[in-house]
Amino acid sequence: MAGLELLSDQGYRLDGRKPSELRKVQARMGVFAQADGSAYIEQGNTKALAVVYGPHEVRGSRSKTLHDRAVINCQYSMATFSTAERKRRPHGDRKSSEMSLHLKQTFEAAVLTQLYPRSQIDIYVKILQSDGGNYSACVNAATLAVIDAGIPMRDYVCACSAGFVEDTPLADLCHAEESGGGTSLALALLPRSGQIALLQMDARLHQDHLDPLIEAAMTACKGLSDVLDSVVRQHLQEVSVLTRD
């Protein structure tokens, strides 16, 4: 069997979604008490946990200190049980380092780092179950965690992946779609301003198709930001009810 049929003639994807539909998103904020901020997100079967410490003094070598803004330190890891076949090394391999770097770039663009000179913000993200779109789940989880920590940001950072199959852009790819051999693009967006925090794509794509693909990813990101926004609001409501008493 060479290749699954990612998009049927009737316009359904493998899991029954239409091309522009997102997977089901569920999120919770403030899952850990001892961290400054924390959040848990499920995007379909991709599950991610994010923890934020800071802003605090720069630890380790002092030379990393920046005088005009805060240093953002990101670490990405995957649980050994997160994939179908058990992983040997939870973090520190090439892929994880790259992912950490991408996360760092994304949040440097979104967090108002100049408010905290000479300090450091740590963001730790762990994938508990991996089913495609790891990067976007991490970004979304980390956004919620940063908000939970009370660190000011320009806007939510929402990330979503998009693929391109049979001349149709597909939003929010699952693992089967990602490994199906097509193009996959990851986009992190500041939805209100429409600014792009990060855009990453490895595979080949015809230039004519790039615009519709980015368009689809942006629409998906905006959809996600609505979901995240409602999660934040609900969390605030719960918290304020608790504190009022």
């Binding site: 493998l14 899991d15 029954g16 997977r23 089901k24 179908a84 076949e85 089913d131 699952c174």
Partner: peptide, 21 residues
């Protein structure tokens, strides 16, 4: 079956909807 021939348990999402033509 994984590429190495072992049996792997895979969980896939499956979305249902009310309106299917």
């Amino acid at each position: 079956k994984s590429s190495r021939g072992r049996k792997v348990r895979v969980v896939r999402e499956h979305y249902l909807r009310e309106h299917i033509p």
